[in-house]
Design a protein around this nucleic acid. Structure first.
Lengths: 333, 333
DNA sequence: TTTGTTCGAGGAAGCGCTTCCTTGATGGGG
DNA sequence: CCCCATCAAGGAAGCGCTTCCTCGAACAAA
């Protein structure tokens, strides 16, 4: 840990001056200011917020108070549900939950510095985007980190993660389709670079292969509604004889159902559909969706306890938990 | 601010012993332990986490890292959207966002103590439940606080809040119904104790009264889907000639539309409907809902800046901002 | 009785930073 | 030419807590 004294020494000034320079006080000679800034930059100095807050009598932190009812109401999103589980679990401990936002346009390195500056004991990461180096960078840092959802890079690194059983869930989905007598079954996936897409595709193919069915009717999409609509179109164009489809998110399923209706294909009479997530959409859509449910709150809670374990045992092994998924049967099969 | 030294003096022991007693170290005589605990209780001692973390070299805080994409995906919930705005705004400052959960079964007093122990400079509050004394208690405390959404108790206290223009939005909704030629217009409300219900009802009645229409066709509900379905039933039972309805949330509208369909009333041919919130439900439902949109992200962001102002000017006036709402026209009118 | 242990308690240092107070240097006015 | 105001910089105290180290007392063993 590099302290203000280190910076002062490096810059050849007193700690007082270094402090002033860093905090932009005006009673410092410009030359010294830049000397201190160079030194700070060179040494990678991050002010210790605890010391600062102790000295200043201020804390630079604001609480966001949330009622439980509030979060419970968000029964619709991956993030919200996991957040609920995590917050509940955190509330049991004497820790604080600090929220950090990684902006879309922020570089991984910059964010990593920001994270280090925030002086937390560990971090939990919920990332949806796959085009980021963050998992790899975090794995290299000394900070205990747990991911929610297996990062694609996890295979040969020592990352810890908590995930739901995407392989098993997709398998259930595919088997439900097969059990309904479907034989030409397609799949609408998320971005192929994401671990979740890979896992769900694997479960799907495992089931189809086991029954000797063609498992190559694949359309890649983006987990969003519009993307689902498009993917459904291309799937239909290429395989007009399609009689079943596994869609990797409710959101995409909403789009897919729209396309199906527009093409005059009835669900589930002409074609069966199973999706993933069990969000509100699954019950408001017509027909109501048969979909795979993830134990999101448990995932969030487990993420917290896993991180606590990681923090408690600095050189312990990585934690990799997979929690079971289940099929919720409704009207789309 | 009461420190460990105060406690030690009160208990008649050294600071060392007081510290040990409070942290449950074993080398302290049981009698002293209880003496210290009594003193701490009596004085209302809360360990300063900054000092503690400085001394211990640990921070007792974990980050929850969230990608922006992630939050953006939650375009469906009041809380999520406001959170997005708040986090973005916080990211611009050098503050940390600490999340605190008020559990449903937790007493207000207990939560307040918890909040004080967390040593933040201020708090933002998003509460959905109305049966709580928290707003009043917070108003009494010295901590700067901003509410998202006007608390019902706000009328004669000095609370600060940021809210969307519920009165104006409801007025827009009612006027859209009237403009569509509807004359027997009912309303499905949230719990009558909530400020948001009161405001929306007022806007609704303002518009109807201005046109000389009966504004007393009211069914109270709970903002949830099932409640909306029930309320729609009782409204229909009491006023069979209903030709328009304003529903105070998309979620309730989903239930109301279900009831309407079950009763053979077509939307919008037989009866027009306008709801509130503009969540995903509004676009996945059939028909797509005409609904009032709130500037949720701006609300969240403004909440952050307002709190910053409050913190900066300790004895300043309360901040009460109302941000404009707008009507999103779709197919249900 | 003397010596060695054990146990409970306190003194004091120190965590990393800010800031009051002091000091030395510089320059302008009388 | 001297004095005083001004400015830049450092010394040192202190924020509130933990914990190492020391010390005295009580007690058991020799």
């Amino acid at each position: 840990m590099v302290t203000l004294d280190d910076v002062a020494r490096e810059a050849g000034v007193s700690r007082t001056t270094a402090s002033r320079a860093i905090n932009g006080k005006l009673t410092v000679h410009p030359e010294r200011i830049s000397a201190v800034q160079r030194a700070a930059e060179k040494l990678g100095f991050r002010p210790n917020p605890a010391a600062r807050s102790l000295a200043r009598g201020k804390h630079d932190s604001v609480a966001l108070i949330v009622s439980e009812t509030n979060i419970e109401g968000m029964t619709n999103s991956f993030f919200a549900m996991a957040l609920h589980g995590a917050i509940r679990e955190i509330a049991k401990s004497d820790q604080q939950l600090v929220m950090l936002l990684r902006a879309n346009d922020e570089s991984d390195e910059k964010f990593l510095r920001f994270l280090e500056a925030s002086h937390v004991d560990g971090a939990m990461v919920i990332l949806e985007s796959h085009n980021t180096e963050l998992p790899r960078l975090l794995a290299q840092s000394a900070l205990p980190v747990v991911f929610l959802g297996r990062p694609a890079e996890s295979v040969n690194s020592s990352l810890s993660y908590i995930d739901s059983d995407n392989v098993g869930g997709s398998r259930l989905a595919a088997e439900a389709l097969i059990a309904a007598g479907r034989r030409r079954i397609g799949v609408i996936t998320g971005p192929s670079g994401m671990g979740v897409t890979q896992d769900r595709l694997r479960g799907f193919q495992l089931a189809l292969d086991a029954h000797g069915l063609d498992s190559s009717l694949i359309a890649e999409s983006n987990f969003q509604t519009a993307g689902g609509a498009e993917a459904m179109q291309s799937l239909l164009d290429q395989h007009p004889d399609l009689d079943g489809v596994f869609v990797m998110s409710d959101l995409m399923a909403a789009g897919a159902v729209g396309t199906l209706k527009a093409r005059g294909r009835r669900v589930p009479e002409d074609i069966s559909l199973v999706s993933f997530d069990d969000t509100v959409i699954a019950t408001t859509l017509e027909p109501r969706l048969t979909t795979v449910r993830q134990p999101l709150e448990q995932l969030g809670a487990r993420m917290v306890t896993a991180l606590a374990e990681l923090i408690a045992t600095p050189n312990g092994a990585a934690i990799r938990d997979t929690l079971p998924t289940s099929l919720v049967r409704r009207d789309s099969v």
